[in-house]
Design a protein around this nucleic acid. Structure first.
Lengths: 233, 233
DNA sequence: GTCTATAGTGCGATAGAC
DNA sequence: GTCTATCGCACTATAGAC
């Protein structure tokens, strides 16, 4: 599957995400009409990601946000109860959505080698389609309160664990050579994260997400695949 | 060379760094006595890194910094002319020092395979010895003004280029198989950065920097080394 | 060289009109 | 449901005593 195909089938629109959040946070969102609420949430989150990813969530003032989203300062408070809560809502919704989509896609594959490639591709495609969200998750995680930081860490470890399981299975079934699966999963995550953290670099070089996915898959394969068991000199 | 040996021979003390900065910024630093100046710079930068890495540079107030460094608000302004300048000083000095140390160490090695391993190890050891600095460079780069952001990008690309050159040489000399050296250098950087960005994870797992260096070297080797030219299934 | 006190600014959050 | 006006506070930066 290429990124283009992925976009058509799996693509979640900003509107879907915001509708989800709208219903999940009926307690704090004072606006009752879905059409109005969702439309404004789109504006608000969109503006938040744009401003935060430029200069940091903390450096973004609610006055900035009001201007960029087209709402007034007062109106913003109909959609969240404090600036910190705004941060929390965006983060938490993000984990829920991305971990779910990743697990769902992996289940579709059968043998470990295929699962590994699907997991890599899906993660990259997701982060490509939702780059501002992923960048935000990574860079703003430390501004969460203690309780929510735990969720961020859990999310990181959960994704990593998906890769560990695939690798362990592959070794058991003999299609991967034995290796330290936790370490390999760690560096796989590092490579996947580099894609959305350094987008400026890859864009400049005209490396597409499909190029990157192909390269990373091959790079991992050279280490884990069993056939040429020859170790480096 | 292990990290322990590296620490003894190459280790730069906080004091050396601060003495460098003290002399390089005589213009803005109002204190004239070196002993006093350097001692307080150590306190200030140490406190800045500690507070910033916990909750972000922007979220750290100068009142926080005064408390943590043991100086008064007024005294702080004898060591920098604005909060933004403090950020700039720490960043710029960091690039200067780290790129220099990295280049110097690489020059000592002869053949490409050895150079590659030395570059990986040196980068990891440096970031281990100065973890708060490296974390700070990465996370606060976007809060720099435009001029200084260019320097940050240049620094990232310079380090990457060191790896590209080593890989290109290795291919030319036949000890590495032909491959996309720019892409390989990119993911090498991603793996090196993961070490200081996710220290909590590796500490928790009791992975030492020597463990990580050995693993990463082997992981790269599986892809670039020529002997077992067998490509994955 | 370091302190305390404070000027001046811009923030998050709220109240109440429409 | 959205607006404008404003409160109280915390911030960066400076002035002037010691």
């Amino acid at each position: 599957m290429s990124f283009k195909e992925f976009s058509k089938t799996v693509m979640v629109s900003m509107e879907d995400i915001c509708r989800d959040i709208f219903h999940a946070n009926k307690g704090t969102i004072k606006v009752k009409k879905e059409a109005v609420g969702v439309r404004n949430l789109i504006n608000i989150y969109d503006a938040t990601l744009r401003l935060s990813n430029r200069k940091g969530f903390h450096a973004m003032s609610l006055r900035d946000l009001a201007r960029e989203s087209g709402l007034s300062l007062g109106a913003l408070y109909s959609y969240f109860s404090s600036k910190d809560q705004l941060l929390g809502i965006i983060q938490e919704q993000g984990y829920r959505m991305t971990t779910k989509m990743l697990s769902d896609e992996i289940k579709k594959a059968s043998d470990p080698a295929e699962k590994l490639e699907v997991a890599v591709r899906t993660h990259l495609y997701l982060s490509e389609a939702m780059q501002p969200w992923f960048y935000f998750f990574y860079m703003e995680a430390r501004h969460l309160d203690k309780e929510e930081q735990k969720k961020a860490i859990a999310s990181e470890l959960y994704t990593e664990q998906l890769f560990v399981s695939i690798l362990d299975d592959g070794i058991k079934q003999g299609c991967f050579r034995p290796h330290d699966t936790v370490m390999v999963a760690s560096v796989i995550k590092a490579m996947l994260q580099d894609w959305y953290l350094k987008r400026w670099k890859y864009s400049r070089r005209k490396v597409t997400v499909d190029d990157y996915a192909g390269f990373v898959t091959g790079f991992i394969g050279a280490y884990v695949n069993s056939p040429g068991k020859a170790m480096p000199s």
